[in-house]
Design a binder for these strands. Structure first.
Length: 271
DNA sequence: CAGACCTCCTGAACGC
DNA sequence: TGCGTTCAGGAGGTCT
């Protein structure tokens, strides 16, 4: 389950292996991902990779005449391996480079995506409706409060909505709300500006810390699976339903919201 | 527009 | 041991 920090660490890890390299070949072993991989992906062949960017949880491999968009979905991983590395189960997609390296996508659940974006296959539909990056200055004091006015949705659903802010997955939503002392069920529009500003800063801090931790595993990125992020940090509530709150010892409770599990402390968190 | 719900998929965990 | 069942969840799509 790559969250935004994992995707950013992935970007940092693969970038130096890709930038400036020419794409020698494209290998698709299974077209059936979240969306079918478009035949137009072949247009990337022969192109130089100019940059590797990230928007929300999308990786954007910028080429001369278009962009390869990658999404890891729930279970995707990307590795830079030598061309002679054996194919494993669920290795659906390869970007073969002229330097003998291969960018290889493995995704058991196939919630991930590989798309080709150019002037004919635009990225407008997919990327322009997204809210601000959580670590950018566009996501700062006043923003959540302004957006929340009149909104009755639970705050947890609200911060997981990509139109509001991108990159906040279920795990970090649970953790951030715990740290902010806000119940996941609280109506977004009922929360005062001060508390929403605090939540904003907590979201930034939690994501930034995870990226920083993940960065320490970068040196082995082409070898090991470099699985950083939330595994490395101690989770306060996620996956701890029925156990004692680390803060006040109250038993943590679990409910379902929008078909996602929410875990919270009924004592530390309030409306 | 806002909000609820659905859908894709496989592996892990569990029950008998 | 080996089935069957349940669950997890990113995010676009569909409906009311």
């Amino acid at each position: 389950m790559p969250e935004l920090p994992e995707v950013e660490v992935c970007r940092l890890g693969i970038s130096p292996h890709l930038i400036g390299e020419k794409i020698q070949d494209i290998v698709v072993r299974n077209y059936q991902l979240r969306w079918p991989i478009p035949a137009e992906i072949i247009q990337a062949k022969g192109q130089i990779i100019l940059a590797v960017e990230r928007r929300a949880k999308y990786l954007l491999i910028r080429c001369e005449s278009g962009t390869i968009l990658l999404h890891l979905g729930m279970s995707g991983t990307i590795r830079v391996v030598n061309q002679s590395t054996a194919i494993a189960k669920h290795d659906h997609f390869d970007l073969v480079l002229e330097n003998n390296n291969v960018l290889r996508l493995n995704d058991p659940r196939r919630f991930g995506a590989v798309l080709w974006l150019d002037s004919h296959h635009d990225e407008q539909g997919l990327l322009t409706k997204l809210g601000p990056e959580p670590l950018s200055d566009d996501f700062s004091d006043g923003y959540l409060f302004q957006k929340a006015q009149g909104r009755k949705v639970p705050i947890k659903t609200f911060i997981m909505n990509n139109h509001i802010v991108v990159g906040v997955g279920n795990i970090y939503a649970n953790e951030a709300l715990f740290k902010a002392g806000i119940l996941p069920t609280a109506q977004a529009g009922n929360i005062n500006e001060e508390r929403l500003n605090a939540l904003t800063h907590i979201i930034k801090a939690v994501l930034a810390a995870a990226i920083k931790q993940g960065g320490t595993t970068l040196k082995d990125f082409t070898q090991a699976d470099g699985r950083p992020g939330y595994f490395a940090q101690s989770l306060q509530v996620y996956g701890r339903a029925g156990q004692a709150c680390h803060c006040c010892n109250t038993t943590l409770e679990e409910i379902r919201q929008s078909n996602r599990s929410s875990v919270f402390c009924p004592s530390c968190q309030s409306e």
